[in-house]
């Protein structure tokens, strides 16, 4: 059993400084951490490995600093770590990211049985990389998985999808994305972390090494173009209701009952009338 986990490093804080002229985020100014959903995916992989044996390859595309999340994965029990690090890979949208990850998996783990990803990342939040990687690798796949069971080559998973609790089955090789609902990540053992940082066991690869076509990776291979970035909090105009609580609450329903009711699917706009006589 060979499992590949795709891990992304994301900024520790959600508020990053950005350059208003170029519209680019100044990622260098924030400390990084392993994306939460990726941590849960790694935990799922570790449990599968403990139960069924085999090996675990951790894969990350990112700047040199992203090596940290791979060291963390090694400390937790990954057998092999690969950093896809190349300026030409930078600025990738999900189309380019999924192409890059697919080429890398085929280059370093052609015999893999299962690819695990996080369901979304906290910095881009698209949740698109999982489905797009499944397309590129042409694998049966399930997204937002909360529970999984492997019997031989048959995988049974459970997930909540649009208010339905679904149980799905598929055969390996397959791809899953994992939510932060289950698979609570274990603590990183201190000794393991020290060892993982001391031993230089992260393999660094560039675009050529994974056999990616240069016009399909990074900024060049991306379809979306950013026109500008701005801060919505600066734009959102909060209406403050002061005064007695009861009056404020009534005002809330009078002014926003329609909108609120529409969003929660109930009629809130009108106070019950006409029955007092």
């Amino acid at each position: 059993m060979h499992i590949v986990v795709c891990l992304k490093q994301v900024p520790m804080v959600s508020e990053l400084p950005w350059d208003p002229r170029t519209g680019r985020l100044m990622r260098g100014q924030a400390e990084g951490m392993m994306n939460p959903a990726c941590k849960h995916a790694l935990e799922a992989a570790l449990r599968l490995k403990e139960e069924h044996g085999g090996s675990l390859t951790a894969l990350c595309m990112g700047p040199p600093e992203a090596e940290e999340v791979l060291r963390e994965a090694l400390a937790l029990g990954a057998d092999e770590a690969v950093l896809l690090c190349d300026p030409r890979l930078a600025g990738a949208d999900t189309l380019a990211t999924s192409h890059t990850l697919a080429r890398a998996i085929q280059a370093v783990a052609p015999d893999f049985d299962l690819a695990l990803l996080g369901c979304t990342t906290t910095d881009s939040e698209t949740g698109q990389v999982g489905p797009q990687l499944a397309e590129e690798l042409d694998l049966p796949a399930a997204f937002n998985v909360e529970h999984l069971e492997l019997t031989g080559r048959a995988l049974t998973v459970r997930r909540v999808y649009d208010g339905f609790l679904e149980t799905l089955e598929m055969d390996l090789p397959a791809l899953l994305t994992i939510t932060t609902q289950e698979f609570a990540p274990r603590e990183t053992p201190l000794g393991g972390l020290e060892r993982a940082f001391a031993q230089a066991s992260v393999r660094v690869m560039d675009a050529e090494a994974i056999g990616a076509s240069l016009d399909r990776v990074g900024d060049k291979g991306s379809a979306g173009r950013m026109l500008r970035v701005y801060s919505p909090t600066a734009q959102k105009k909060c209406v403050l209701l002061t005064g007695a609580v009861k009056k404020s609450v009534q005002e809330l329903f009078e002014r926003y009952g329609d909108r609120l009711g529409g969003l929660i699917g109930q009629d809130l706009a009108s106070e019950e009338e006409g029955h007092d006589q």
Binding site: L95, Q132, G224
Partner: peptide, 23 residues
């Protein structure tokens, strides 16, 4: 941008080789 909609849109964009902006 429902659970299924996100999956469908991402897959379709990939097969069509085009961009998809989320949310």
């Amino acid at each position: 941008a429902t659970s299924f909609g996100r999956e469908l849109a991402a897959r379709a964009a990939k097969r069509l080789g085009t961009g998809l902006t989320a949310d």
